[in-house]
Computed example of a mutant assay.
Amino acid sequence: MTSVSPLWATVVPAAEATGFDGGAFGRTLAFTALAVVVVLAVTFAIALRVGKQAVIDVTWGLGFVAIALTAFATSGGHGDALRRWLALLLTAVWGLRLAGHIFSRSRGKGEDPRYEAMMERADGNPNVYALLHIYLPQGLIMWFVSLPVQIAMFVEGGLAWVLWIGVLLWAVGFFFETVGDLQLTRFRNDPSNKGTVLDTGLWRYTRHPNYFGDASVWTGLFLVAASAWPGVLIVLSPAVMVWNLYGGTGKKLLEKDIGDRRPDYADYVRRTSGFFPWPPKPADPSVKHD
């Protein structure tokens, strides 16, 4: 088995074949799909008990951890040890932090307005509606987005410099996501900030440091897998995550909700980058801020 050490080395020539075991990878895909079903089934049971579907937001990070653990356990004897451990640990650190943050943020609160609006549209059995319109889509996206982590357990050799660029990009994303969430939490916990817009710290350079961070984390994990063939083939997985954060249920819906509630948010949007960090434009002196 080829190692990806030392850090600066090109492990195998690009033309050299790798020992990727497609059959074993297929079996792992089945086990990780089963892990997703189990995690979401437990989540659904908890949601019924506490009376709110928002618990699935906590499960989002934990589900990726369960997938990484399952892939690691069922892929023994395959892949490079360093890449396997990196894929597992980077996913676990990201997922556990995110789950803990969302749990702390939502503890003691009622249902998320997004899920309230969805459940109001339920026709027929509300539990079946929730399974089909909340749990099934999130489970499918979770499993598909996690493909870089799963295939990283099997690929061998490859380009070490691509792997370490992936780790660096993951670290940048984790910094933006973690620090951005901490800054927003402090801002919200200060009563004097009620009704105002956070435009300092990382939020001065991007309206969504946490979403940018999330996208960077999963692009980095993709590069960890894509550093060896055939990891590059699952490029659609990070693309789905980035699209979801930028144009799907992330940035787009959140900004619409905030814009409806805070009149000075429009000026913040005008002068602050929507996703990628960038120096802000000057404030409009004609806009009055509360």
Rank of each mutant, 00 (worst) to 15 (best):
T74C: 06
T74K: 08
G77E: 13
H78F: 12
G79M: 03
D80G: 05
A81L: 11
A87M: 12
A87L: 10
L89P: 00
A92Q: 00
W94V: 10
G95Y: 02
G95M: 03
G95R: 02
R97S: 07
R97H: 08
L98W: 00
A99E: 05
A99S: 12
A99I: 10
A99N: 01
G100F: 07
G100P: 03
G100D: 06
H101C: 03
H101L: 10
F103S: 11
S106F: 11
S106A: 12
S106E: 11
R107S: 13
G108H: 12
G110R: 10
P113S: 11
P113V: 08
P113E: 12
R114M: 09
Y115T: 13
Y115W: 12
A117F: 01
M118S: 08
M118K: 15
E120W: 11
R121C: 06
R121V: 08
A122K: 05
D123E: 13
G124A: 04
N125G: 07
P126T: 01
N127G: 09
V128H: 09
Y129M: 09
A130K: 04
L131S: 11
L132R: 14
L132K: 12
H133I: 06
I134L: 14
Y135P: 00
Y135R: 03
Y135I: 03
G139P: 01
I141R: 01
F144K: 07
V145H: 06
P148D: 15
V149L: 09
Q150K: 10
M153F: 04
M153K: 03
F154G: 02
E156P: 02
G158V: 14
L159S: 12
A160N: 11
W161T: 10
W161K: 08
V162Y: 02
V162D: 02
L163Q: 15
L163T: 14
W164F: 14
G166L: 11
G166C: 07
V167T: 12
L168M: 14
W170Y: 15
W170N: 09
A171C: 13
F174A: 02
F175G: 00
F175W: 14
F176S: 03
E177S: 10
E177R: 04
T178E: 00
V179I: 13
V179L: 14
D181W: 04
D181G: 09
L182D: 07
Q183T: 07
L184P: 00
T185Q: 12
T185L: 05
F187E: 00
R188K: 14
R188M: 10
N189T: 08
S192W: 11
N193G: 10
L198F: 02
D199P: 01
T200L: 09
T200R: 15
G201T: 13
W203C: 01
T206R: 00
R207N: 00
H208Y: 02
P209G: 05
Y211A: 09
A215N: 02
S216C: 15
V217P: 00
V217D: 00
